[in-house]
Design a binder for these strands. Sequence first.
DNA 1: GTTTGTGAATAGTTTCACAGCA
DNA 2: TGCTGTGAAACTATTCACAAAC
Lengths: 207, 207
Amino acid sequence: MRYRKIPDETVRRLPAYLRGAMHLSRGGVVSTSSQELAALLGVEPWQIRKDFSYFGDFGTPGVGYDLGHLISRVNKILRLNVGHKTVLVGVGNLGSALLAFPGFRTYGFEIAAAFDIDRRKIGRRKAGVLIEDVAALAGLRARGIQLGILAVPETASQKTAEALVKAGIKGILNFAPRRIAVPRGIKVITIDIAMDLARLPYYVPAG
Amino acid sequence: MRYRKIPDETVRRLPAYLRGAMHLSRGGVVSTSSQELAALLGVEPWQIRKDFSYFGDFGTPGVGYDLGHLISRVNKILRLNVGHKTVLVGVGNLGSALLAFPGFRTYGFEIAAAFDIDRRKIGRRKAGVLIEDVAALAGLRARGIQLGILAVPETASQKTAEALVKAGIKGILNFAPRRIAVPRGIKVITIDIAMDLARLPYYVPAG
DNA sequence: GTTTGTGAATAGTTTCACAGCA
DNA sequence: TGCTGTGAAACTATTCACAAAC
């Protein structure tokens, strides 16, 4: 089944497989099976096998998956094999938390620059990162940063996204609860925290 | 098409429709169309109509949707018509940001209690909320809180989730990058920030 | 015997196109 | 005429079951 269109849902699950594989690997495990990985992550084994089958060359029938090979393969597919520098815009409550957030390292990300509009923050450091003036965002171009994390207030999100695109950013992780319009070729993934909480009561029986 | 199984994807989109409708309503608009709402949110008009069709009694052919009616209808479907008190566990960087996060109010949520394990935080207030000892989580039962927000470190997430369930919590918004096992009838929605960032490079052409 | 890889079957979701109502 | 509501068609994703590989 090689060389077919990769389902978006498969791409969505790959980081989880990677996390599980790295977890096992850190524990000294060298080889695993779809069953073991599935049990660890709370998914079904055939889902993992099917997802991997879109790419080919993952495991060995009768044996399982070599963790080193699996990890490097998924890393390459997701383009995580090269570490990514990212820029954070908006160093408020959420932005500050993201600066200190250890989870990004798991996948080789580093927040290498931070910008804010607030004069009182500009020039200071937070979690080791210098906070720069958002007006100078264009200067990013030279620094080889392609991914942006948008943690500005909703009202500023569209304009800030446009500034990021102008600065050469190709992918945006957006935390503002609003649609971000960007040119073709730029990918936006939005995390809308309140919206995710908002569908929780639907699934809880007697509210 | 009334009284059929509601697609999960429809439920996922309802909060967005609600947000759009409230936005229009605050702007003084009284009535809207699937086209107008769709343009605002960046989705397709027939998607909105189809989603609403699972419930029936939304709009008027030839006229459109009355915003007051639409908002109250979606609120009722999502069980947001009664305001929900929630509990936050873990007042670290992310937890603190969530305490101060204004977005929850949009859907009628209030963080009414906060717990942490750190002696230095217990007894203090943050964003007006008293931080209590996580060992006293069981005392929640009497306070009529059904939803929990889990912002503790990954290693503590499973145990804390179990304590929440014991305290009568029925739904959990989990920020730990790990599977949370809970009894049947308890709903967990996980927001894995790093994982969402991890699939961004896949969509960005030359990494 | 064990475990992968994958076509085929099933299920779920999106999109269309238009009947029906205001 | 304009807009909703919805069956039907098209598409996408999940699940199964088993042949092939070790």
